[in-house]
Design a protein around this nucleic acid. Structure first.
Lengths: 167, 167
DNA sequence: CAATTCATATGACGTTGTCATATAAATTGT
DNA sequence: ACAATTTATATGACAACGTCATATGAATTG
């Protein structure tokens, strides 16, 4: 994304944003913060909706997360290319993580939540990243995004063997 | 990475690479192919070494994969930012995937290998990506890369409950 | 040794991020 | 209502970038 593009969309010249942002990176960081924040709100709504069982809500939350990568790949890339030590960005990302953590805790319980949350977050990010880069082609890998997410949630669900024949 | 940097390291001017590569993207694609290829060789050696049990070899292979992200972040980013439909790149990436697939099959058996391979590859990529972007800080997440990899391999290992007290 | 190919240098072009300066619009104080 | 100040934008400049056309020297070949 070029600053000319940012400007063109607002009908404004190339240097105009510098009255509002210190430099390009700060501008992009703000966009990343918005992305984290909006996603946190979306997942938060999903979590608060008590209509569905915990596993289903978790699965939907993960798909919402990956959905950003599918529908707005640049936005998704932005979220993870902004330096993670920017306080405002860390806060917004933390809000999303907290939502996910709660969701995971609803499935596996508080005691195991931390570990499984980390694994699940990483895996979701990986699925999104592979899909984003085009390295996850259903033909050669045999599975798609949705199937992987289901496997992931199933693997985390306690008390049930993954290859349980009752599935 | 700028072409001036490429040139400077070779003691050569900015436009010199254009005698050998059509444009910058083609040059970077070649670097990505080298990265995929070398990593495939490394993992291949690990796989062929029958000294360790399958789970350990798989775990080491994943850590080797993630090791690229940790030790050579630009190289790792390059591997996944190059268009996946470039034939030579797809071939080199396919070689690495085949090595991993064999390793996974050694652990879970041929029948389940495909699905678990895809999940494992995605998760490994996600762990690497989070580590790379700085979003996986041990303080807030409570776990590090090595612990996540161990959880991942354990979760895939058949016939053993993840939270087995004998661990 | 002449002819040809190959690798590189040089200089130009348009574009980018950035900044200093100028100017117009909006806000404020009286 | 008007002067003073703040705010938002435009303009033009700069260096660095990817790219290319051209030229030159080094290798290779006959």
């Amino acid at each position: 994304m070029t600053l000319r593009e940012v400007g063109a969309r607002a009908g404004v010249s190339r240097g105009a944003p510098y009255g509002h942002f210190e430099n390009k990176e700060h501008l992009l960081t703000q966009l990343a913060i918005n992305a984290w924040s909006e996603l946190a709100d979306e997942v938060g709504k999903l979590r608060a909706d008590a209509g569905a069982p915990a596993q289903v809500r978790l699965e939907q939350a993960i798909l919402t997360f990956i959905g950003v990568a599918r529908r707005r790949p640049h936005r998704y890339a932005l979220m993870f290319s902004t330096p993670a030590d920017t306080p405002a960005a860390a806060e917004a990302a933390g809000r999303l993580e907290k939502e996910f953590f709660t969701l995971v805790a609803d499935v596996v319980g508080e005691s195991d939540a931390q570990r499984y949350f980390a694994l699940l977050m990483s895996s979701a990010h990986g699925i999104a990243g592979l899909e984003l880069s085009g390295h996850l082609s259903k033909e050669t890998w045999g599975v798609g995004v949705d199937q992987l997410v289901r496997m992931l949630v199933d693997a985390i669900r306690p008390g049930v063997r993954e290859a349980d024949p009752s599935d």
